[in-house]
Design a protein around this nucleic acid. Structure first.
Lengths: 170, 170
DNA sequence: GCCAATTGATTAGCCGCCTTACAATTAGGT
DNA sequence: ACCTAATTGTAAGGCGGCTAATCAATTGGC
């Protein structure tokens, strides 16, 4: 009774055989679907990473730049970037280190509160994001290019229906 | 014209406004769908990681154990584990280091070819995998629990239709 | 006013993934 | 037989996530 490798690109077609005896039959297809989806999204994610690396960026770094882009002249504090980006403050610190080293971003002392910083994009940062975005969104759109508009709407509906409440305490 | 943060848990509903001007209108919904899917799968992945960590495992480590489980008594070489798992050999080395340190796995000299190793699960490893799997698959099945059987089949069909050929050289 | 609690950012350390480089070994062509 | 080429596993180094701990600065309760 082979068990399918979790969350990897793999033979994958006989996932049905996964965990026989561990799971009610009705749930087998759920697990199979989850594995296929995670693998597909992982592949897409890696394509995106590869594309961004040509510009010296990563998904995380691009995320920071986009958040700053959306902030206009005001900039953002690292905490805001963390909250809006759904990552920890420590991670933001690391990403900002990289971005600042490449001159894409600058840390500016907050006048009112000496604990805070203001992060602002440099002109170089703005140039880079303008250069990257077309390629970035084109790649993403291409990946889903084989889906019709109706299928895309289906996919969105299904993805949104997948719950992420509190998991069972098994 | 705010641009949506790429691949993160976020406000997300007005993704439609992403990259206006960078992308033909027909592709906007594709990008939106990709963002939602990646985010959903990322959330699921993190739930899985959190669950596995209760057993001292990670997705990568569990993957190795499952591959070994499926190999029966024969075991696998690190190269085979890398190929079948879709990860690099260097990564396998790291995962094996961790698994071996916890006594879940052992490296055995290959008799015929002194370059190779045979990796085998220890009894402790077999016990652990038996303890982890029910919880693991239950969590995954639970995550998709709100989908009907028909929807699951739809989802599988859509995920498999998403292309992963060679991306456009933009 | 002052001490305690909170907040902002950083550091250190772990993990898993990657790439690149390398030593040891084996396989193959001539 | 030998020399080259390919293969195996590992090491080193980078990256980006995380948690936990730390430190400075600010705020609030009394």
């Amino acid at each position: 009774m082979p068990i399918e490798f979790p969350f990897r690109k793999l033979p994958t077609r006989q996932t049905a055989s996964m965990a026989s005896g561990y799971i009610p039959d009705a749930d087998l297809s759920r697990v199979e679907a989850a594995l296929i989806c995670v693998r597909t999204m992982n592949d897409l994610y890696q394509s995106v990473e590869a594309n961004l690396s040509r510009f010296g960026l990563s998904v995380g770094r691009l995320g920071i730049l986009i958040l700053l882009h959306n902030s206009g002249e005001a900039g953002r504090t690292p905490s805001e970037l963390a909250d809006e980006g759904g990552i920890t403050r420590a991670t933001v610190t690391g990403l900002l280190d990289g971005l600042e080293k490449e001159g894409l971003v600058e840390r500016i002392k907050h006048p009112g509160d000496r604990r805070m910083l203001h992060i602002r994009m440099t002109p170089k940062g703005r140039d880079l994001i303008a250069a990257v975005l077309p390629s970035h969104v084109q790649l993403i759109a291409w990946a889903l290019g084989s889906l019709t508009e109706a299928e895309i709407q289906q996919l969105i509906a299904l993805a949104e229906k997948i719950g992420t409440g509190s998991p069972p305490r098994t």
